[in-house]
Amino acid sequence: MTRVYNFSAGPSALPTAVLERARDELLDWHGTGMSIMEMSHRSKDYVAIAERAESDLRELLSIPAGYKVLFLQGGASAQFAAIPMNLLRDKTTVAYVNTGIWSKKAIAEAKKYARVQIAASGEPNNFCAIPPRAAWTVDADAAYLHYTSNETIGGVEFQDIPDAGGLPLVSDMSSNILSRPLDVGRFGLVYAGAQKNMGPAGIAVVILREDLIGEPMAATPSILDYRQQADNGSMLNTPPTYPWYLLGLVLEWLKEQGGLAAIEAVNVRKSAKLYAAIDRSPFYSNPVDPACRSRMNVPFRIANTELEKTFLAEARAAGLVNLEGHRSVGGFRASIYNAMPEAGVDSLIGFMGEFERKYG
Rank of each mutant, 00 (worst) to 15 (best):
P131Q: 13
I153W: 05
I101K: 03
W136I: 10
A106E: 02
A95D: 10
E123P: 04
W136E: 11
T137C: 14
K105T: 09
I101D: 06
D90V: 15
C128Q: 09
K105V: 09
F127H: 06
T93G: 06
V97I: 15
G155I: 01
D90R: 15
V156A: 06
D90H: 14
P124Y: 14
I118E: 07
N150R: 02
K112I: 01
V156P: 03
G155T: 03
I107T: 10
T92E: 14
E123C: 05
I101W: 08
V97Y: 01
D141T: 14
W102D: 00
V94Y: 04
A106R: 00
V116N: 00
A134C: 15
P132N: 12
A135Y: 13
Y144G: 02
A106F: 08
P124S: 08
I107S: 03
T137V: 15
T137E: 15
D90A: 15
T152D: 07
T93E: 13
A134L: 14
N150Y: 03
A120F: 08
D139G: 10
K104S: 12
S103M: 06
A119F: 01
V94L: 04
Q117P: 03
V116K: 01
G100K: 04
A134W: 14
R133L: 15
S121Q: 10
W102H: 06
A110V: 04
A143H: 03
H146A: 01
D139L: 11
I101Y: 05
T92C: 05
E109A: 11
Q117I: 15
E109K: 10
A129G: 11
N98K: 05
Q117Y: 06
A142L: 08
N98Y: 04
K104L: 12
A120L: 12
W136D: 05
S121N: 10
I153L: 09
Y144E: 02
I107G: 05
Q117R: 14
I107P: 01
G154K: 09
G122Q: 07
P124E: 12
V94R: 00
N150K: 04
E151Q: 09
A106P: 02
R133H: 14
Y113F: 13
G154S: 11
D139I: 08
A120C: 09
W102K: 02
A114I: 03
K104Y: 09
D90L: 08
C128H: 08
A134Y: 14
K112R: 12
V94F: 03
I153C: 03
G154Q: 13
A119E: 00
K104H: 11
F127N: 04
I101M: 04
P131C: 07
Y147T: 03
P124A: 12
G154V: 08
I101T: 11
G100F: 04
A134I: 14
K112T: 04
T99D: 05
A114L: 05
S149N: 07
A95K: 02
T137G: 11
